[in-house]
Amino acid sequence: MEGRETVVVTGFGPFRQFLVNPSWTAAQGLKVFGLGERIDVYIKEVPVSYVQTQKIIADIWQTLQPKFAVHLGTARGSSVVILEQTGKNSGYRDRDVCGFCPESHCCLEGGPEKLDSVINMRAVSKEFRQAGVDVIYSRDAGRYLCDFAYYCSLCHGGRRAALIHIPSSGRLSSADRLVPLLQTLIRTMLDQLEDPSDSQSQ
């Protein structure tokens, strides 16, 4: 059918105490809820592995060529939704679930030190906060697999990506509240992508 577009949503695989990662549960929920009738939602579970993450993200952009990619990560100890503006290239020193860490401590040797999403996350978070929702803006995604995946995606996808850290505790961590909120957040981002003037309201 003409006029359909793909949005990719990724969540992470098992990690430490999360035998099923809440970010993957949320991605599955978004597949069920959808993002509107003209959008095909493609979901992918990404292992907490630098090598696998790099390969999967590159593959997503090359084969699916989505309009937009949303990467969900779990913020341990957080009770708010965090919208990340920036992916960082270097400083990756923590080992992944395979016990591996990139020798260069980089996503992409020689790549820019940071990449920002085309979406103005500050404007999106402000809109939701004004409506009384606990959504905050951040420029530091933590230098682990979430940040790593985000940078790779921003790089491959012409910066048409988002990283949303979801809460691991509190009211918004329950799927029945979280998934509809994520649906609205992502649709707001897609509207901004369609009409960049939306992003100017700081």
Rank of each mutant, 00 (worst) to 15 (best):
N89P: 01
L154P: 02
F68T: 05
K67Y: 11
Q52C: 09
L30V: 04
G77S: 09
G3D: 07
D94Y: 11
P167K: 13
G91T: 12
S138K: 02
R16Q: 14
M189T: 04
R95N: 10
W24T: 08
M121Q: 09
Q62V: 08
R187H: 12
G170Y: 10
Q62H: 12
Y144D: 08
V124G: 00
F18Y: 07
C101E: 15
T74F: 13
T63Y: 12
Y92I: 07
G158H: 13
V48L: 11
C107T: 00
G3T: 03
H105T: 12
E2R: 09
A131H: 13
A141Y: 00
H71G: 03
V133G: 02
H156P: 03
D94L: 15
Y144V: 07
T63H: 14
S199V: 01
T63L: 14
I136R: 00
Q17K: 11
T86V: 15
Q52S: 13
H71N: 01
S169N: 06
L181F: 03
T74K: 09
S90E: 07
E37P: 03
L154H: 02
D96G: 07
K31P: 07
L35A: 06
N120E: 13
T86S: 10
C152S: 13
P112M: 03
A175C: 12
I166T: 00
R159P: 00
G87N: 06
L190D: 00
A58V: 08
I136M: 06
L163Y: 02
R93A: 10
S138R: 02
P180R: 12
K126C: 10
S201V: 09
Q28R: 08
Q52F: 08
Q54V: 04
E113K: 11
K88T: 04
K88N: 04
N89Y: 02
Q17C: 07
G142E: 08
R4T: 13
F33A: 15
P102Q: 14
Q85G: 02
L64T: 06
L64A: 09
Y144L: 10
E5P: 06
L145N: 01
G158A: 11
T86K: 05
R95M: 11
K31I: 07
R4C: 10
C146P: 00
A161N: 01
P167H: 11
G29S: 11
Q52H: 09
V118M: 06
V9T: 11
S201K: 12
E84N: 05
P180I: 12
H156F: 04
A69T: 14
C152D: 05
R95E: 14
Y92L: 08
D94K: 14
N21K: 02
T184L: 15
Q62R: 13
F15G: 01
G158M: 09
A141H: 00
S201E: 09
V7K: 03
V8D: 07
T184N: 15
Q200M: 07
A69V: 09
M189D: 00
W61R: 04
N120H: 09
H105F: 13
P180T: 10
C101F: 10
F68Y: 14
Q202M: 10
T63Q: 15
G73R: 03
L83F: 09
V179C: 01
M1E: 12
V70E: 08
L19E: 11
I56M: 12
K44S: 05
V118P: 00
D191C: 11
L145T: 03
G157L: 04
R4P: 01
R139S: 12
K126G: 06
P196H: 04
L108M: 12
G170V: 13
S104P: 04
T188I: 05
E37C: 02
G170L: 14
I56P: 07
